[in-house]
Write a protein that binds this DNA or RNA. Structure first.
Length: 263
DNA sequence: ATGCCCCCGGTTCGGGGA
């Protein structure tokens, strides 16, 4: 079973790209971020035509997440618990039946947090990470396969970026950000890519500016975080960076986990 | 030191991204 995450950077601007990727990569479940549309504006027909069920949690203009899946989810929940006043659409959870039972899959878009000295943005990011941890603690107690997939806007370690010095004061790489990410690992979530490879220079995002892609000046910020029950089913991961060279690309590429959920 | 580039809303620029 192939479960992928991809920050699409505007699903309406990228629908041809998305359909081409679905047809070639053929994921069973795709977690999208930054769909940048309200639910009514999501181009669901062209995706349904490829055999996918579509669940969205959008908003006007920016943010927005979605779950595309070949099997219909038994349950869908929208919004990260812990703050009823938070109106940003950054979290959607689906529960899917598999031969071994269920797998719970989340598409999440963690706040960027820049600039760090902004009175609202960085505190919002850190608070969101605390809420995510509280949610994860609760879900981990279920002892189910759980896959928290998405754009975390976190560079976990210096080798997860081309030039750590450039990112030193950035909300994606500040010590507090990295510490919050480590807490997610320490409660029992496994970074699937790092668990399956020792390769260096693995990135999932390359800025549109200054020829970052051509120079491989990237960062690894899109992650699949796994509960122990999901980690035990993990076969391999891949970063599908070839799509970054397509015409009119997203600045992120899909990150894919292959799982064996056969009984 | 700053901007490079891109999407969106809605207008010819600003907000947001990272």
């Amino acid at each position: 079973m192939k479960i992928a995450t991809w920050n699409i950077n505007g699903v309406r601007a990228r629908i041809d790209n998305l359909c081409a990727w679905l047809q070639t990569s053929n994921p069973d479940i795709a977690c999208l971020q930054e769909i940048k549309t309200v639910d009514e504006g999501f181009p669901r027909e062209s995706i349904e035509a490829l055999g996918y069920h579509v669940e969205t949690h959008g908003q006007k203009g920016f943010n927005g997440v979605a779950l595309l899946s070949k099997i219909r989810p038994d349950e869908v929940n929208r919004g990260l618990p812990g703050d009823d006043a938070d109106e940003q659409s950054r979290f959607i959870e689906g529960v899917f039946s598999v031969p071994t039972g269920v797998v719970r899959v989340v598409s999440l878009y963690l706040p960027n947090g820049n600039p760090p000295d902004d009175p609202v943005k960085y505190p919002y990011k850190l608070a969101w990470m605390e809420r995510l941890q509280a949610y994860a603690v609760e879900r981990l107690a279920l002892e189910e396969p759980l896959i928290l997939a998405g754009d975390y806007n976190v560079i976990p370690e210096p080798h997860d970026c081309h030039d750590p010095a450039v990112w030193a004061g950035d909300a994606l790489f500040l010590p507090q950000t990295r510490a919050a990410f480590r807490r997610l690992e320490n409660i029992g979530l496994l970074d699937a890519v790092r668990a399956t490879t020792d390769a260096t220079k693995l990135y999932t995002f390359w800025d549109y500016q200054a020829g970052a892609w051509q120079k491989n000046n990237g960062i690894r910020i899109d992650h699949l975080m796994l509960s122990p029950e999901a980690a035990n089913r993990l076969l391999s991961t891949s970063i599908e960076k070839h799509v970054r060279a397509w015409e009119k690309p997203s600045d992120h590429v899909p990150v894919v986990g292959h799982f064996d959920f056969t009984a």
